[in-house]
Structures are given as structure tokens and as C-alpha cells.
Computed example of a mutant assay.
Amino acid sequence: MAGAGFGYGPAFRGLRAAWRRGDEVFAEVALPEGTEGAGFGLHPALFDACLHGFALAGSEGEAGGVPFAWEEVSLHAAGASAVRVRLTRTAAG
């Protein structure tokens, strides 16, 4: 991300692992030690780090992009300090 001109502070560097399976991207994301998730449905830094998985969400050899519209988003617990996400794109991109 830094090579693309994005500078992130320590709280926003939570992407721990990401992998692809076809058109799906899976990611493991965690807040850094000492950053509390309590008080948020989803901590903003944790949510932002989930979006970093979209760097892998394009087609093979094609860069992904950050979405501006969301559908079928589910939050199953509040106050988490670590999450796993599954990212997919619609046919319209």
C-alpha cells in the first residue's frame, strides 16, 4: 500500500493474512496490541484494514479497488479486536 502512495499509521496496519479462492478474497485482520475494539460495533481501524484485502480482489493481474457501495454486510459481534472477512465483487464490479 505504501508503494501506491498510501501512508497508514500503526492502528491501520491490521491486515495479517489474505488469500484468494477464485473471485473471493479472504482476510484475517487484527487491531494492534493496546488498541481496544470495545465501544464500537466494528472499530474504524479494523474496518479500514478489512478493505486492504480489496487490493487482491481484482481479477488475476488486475488491481482491486475500494468499494463505495455495500450490500449484504453482516456484523455478528461487536467490540472485536480481530476478524475474518470474505470479500466478493458483484458482476457490475
Rank of each mutant, 00 (worst) to 15 (best):
H43N: 14
G41C: 10
L15R: 00
E33M: 06
A11P: 02
F54N: 12
L15W: 00
L42I: 14
A45L: 05
A57N: 14
D23F: 01
G41T: 13
A55R: 11
E33G: 03
R21C: 12
A11Y: 03
A45P: 02
A30M: 07
L51T: 02
D23V: 00
S59Q: 15
G14N: 06
G41E: 14
G37I: 11
A55N: 09
G22D: 10
F26H: 14
A27L: 02
A30K: 04
G34M: 04
R20S: 04
L15A: 01
G37Q: 06
P32F: 12
L51C: 09
D23N: 07
D48V: 01
A38P: 03
A38Q: 12
D48A: 15
G22K: 03
G37H: 06
V29S: 03
F47I: 10
R13T: 11
L31H: 09
R16H: 08
E24Y: 07
F47S: 04
E28G: 03
A45H: 08
F12A: 07
A30T: 08
L56K: 06
L46H: 06
E24F: 08
A57L: 13
A18F: 10
V25P: 01
W19E: 11
G14Y: 08
D48Q: 03
T35Y: 13
A18P: 13
A18C: 11
F12H: 15
A57F: 03
A27G: 14
G58F: 12
F40E: 06
E33R: 10
G53H: 00
A18R: 08
E33Q: 13
G14W: 01
R20Q: 07
L46W: 02
L46Y: 04
S59C: 06
A45I: 08
A38T: 13
G58H: 11
L31V: 06
L31P: 04
G58D: 07
G39Y: 04
A18S: 14
V29I: 15
E36S: 13
E33W: 00
L42M: 15
A57R: 04
A30W: 01
L51E: 09
G22A: 08
G58V: 06
F40V: 08
L15T: 03
G37F: 00
L46K: 02
L15H: 00
L56G: 08
R13G: 06
P32C: 12
V25I: 02
G14F: 02
A17H: 09
A57W: 00
C50D: 10
E36R: 15
F40Y: 14
E24D: 11
A57T: 00
A49S: 15
L31E: 11
R16Q: 14
G22L: 01
E24W: 10
H52N: 10
E28L: 07
L46Q: 09
H52R: 09
R21E: 14
A45F: 10
E28T: 10
P32D: 10
F54E: 12
L51M: 14
R21Y: 03
F47A: 11
F26R: 01
R13D: 12
F54V: 04
A18G: 12
R13P: 03
H52Y: 09
F26T: 07
A30V: 09
G39H: 08
A30N: 12
G41Q: 10
R21G: 07
F47N: 02
R13S: 11
A18L: 13
T35Q: 11
R13Q: 15
H52M: 14
T35N: 05
E36W: 05
A38M: 01
